[in-house]
Design a protein around this nucleic acid. Structure first.
Lengths: 226, 226
DNA sequence: GTCATACTTCGATGAAGTCCGAATTGTTAG
DNA sequence: CTAACAATTCGGACTTCATCGAAGTATGAC
């Protein structure tokens, strides 16, 4: 195996949207489970496994086993450099205007729940309407009114509560520097809004599009003027 | 086409040893013909064409048509950065010791002729022994003694002279900053030394290995102490 | 123990990539 | 015009890749 061969393998490991999404997501250094990464990359769990094996083989990521979980983590911060350089080159060489930061920041997903301006403001609305309450540990709890509200929206609260995931996590968004609703409830909410066709998620990126129907619905339910 | 997709395409363009060899070779900014690049990458001309199309599509290289030639050139110096970063990551992440610069500089090929310390010193020997003479245009011409000498080594001078390539080019080596013999004659010389099994070329990289037999032969014919 | 969950392995399939030989197009030299 | 050469296109054989469903392994909850 020569240097050239190794370089080709390394480049090959990054030559897949699914793997790039995983890497980008892991770039912050936080370890995530295989399932999370599968959801993020929008593939089945077994497909995610093979992608993760590819990344492991070229040492871009490392893995910690913890009980029945396997947590994957970026191998080294320098990996972020490579992603950055790659991204810059693409922006520069294909002289494409990358969608401006503001647009993505407006409505984006934090892999399975709504982040960005939209996520922050939905969460804010839930709190001022007393559907959610902030707990001392920083996370949220659902009020009685909240139960009705979420059920109205089509969220299967029974299923959400049964999930092993953190129920209603407060997730901090770097673009807004404010919290938004994550965890099992956040994911279920996003699922419902997608079912209602209020939002549509770009499968390739973290953008969220709001439909015409969604504009109305979001205004009615969350007091949002879009 | 999203940013992630573009990044994947870009990485994919570099995920082939043949294309990486071409890119590395072109990194100096000099434009080369498709045939030269095919020889370098050790593939047929038509295969080289498809590789070059891939590189063109992601804008890593550009092309100038000149008569029946098509000269390919790195699109921008920044491409070199990406290769460097990729190389560094590979060296770092796969904790492999890349052969030290001095070793490659010692004996390397300039795709089809001998460069590096070895190339420079062979050429020097050819000149002091008056087998080659430096011309005013910077290139070389063969003396009567030179004809005998090269024929002795097994070079088919008839065939070399018939080639449309520049006969005996003076090629400048960046590691030595001195000229070495290129062109049709330089290529034929390297071919003969390979036939005699004095040198062996690593097919994947630009390294040249000198065999035991080669050590003796190079000492006898070129006054080189190895 | 039983069941749900997290993850992997296996097998199949369709898509894409690599490569070559042969034929084709276009250009230059004589 | 013809021959040689540079490069491409075409058709194929072959390999690798991405993906999924189904089945299997391991772990934790009760």
């Amino acid at each position: 195996m020569t240097a050239i061969h190794r370089m080709a393998k390394m480049a090959g490991a990054m030559a897949s949207p699914a793997r790039l999404k995983m890497l980008e997501f892991l770039a912050d250094g936080v370890a995530r489970s295989a399932t999370d990464l599968a959801i993020l990359a929008d593939v089945q769990a077994n497909t995610a496994t093979t992608h993760l094996q590819v990344l492991l083989k070229v040492d871009l990521i490392k893995v910690k086993k913890q009980g029945r979980y396997r947590f994957f983590q970026i191998r080294d911060e320098v990996v972020g450099d490579m992603l950055e350089v790659l991204g810059e080159q693409v922006a520069y060489l294909s002289h494409t205007q990358i969608p401006p930061q503001t647009e993505i920041a407006f409505a984006r997903s934090c892999y399975d729940h709504i982040a960005g301006w939209l996520g922050v403001n939905i969460t804010h609305s839930l709190i001022v309407n007393r559907y959610l309450e902030e707990q001392t540990n920083g996370n949220y709890s659902l009020t009685a009114n909240g139960e009705t509200f979420f059920s109205d929206l089509g969220v299967d609260l029974h299923k959400v509560k049964k999930s092993r995931r953190q129920f209603a996590r407060a997730c901090c968004d770097w673009t807004e520097n404010k919290n938004h609703l994550g965890g099992a409830l956040g994911a279920a909410l996003m699922g419902s809004l997608q079912n209602r066709q209020w939002i549509r998620k770009n499968p390739d990126y973290r953008e969220i599009f709001i439909t015409k129907k969604g504009k109305q619905g979001l205004a009615d339910y969350f007091d949002l003027n879009l």
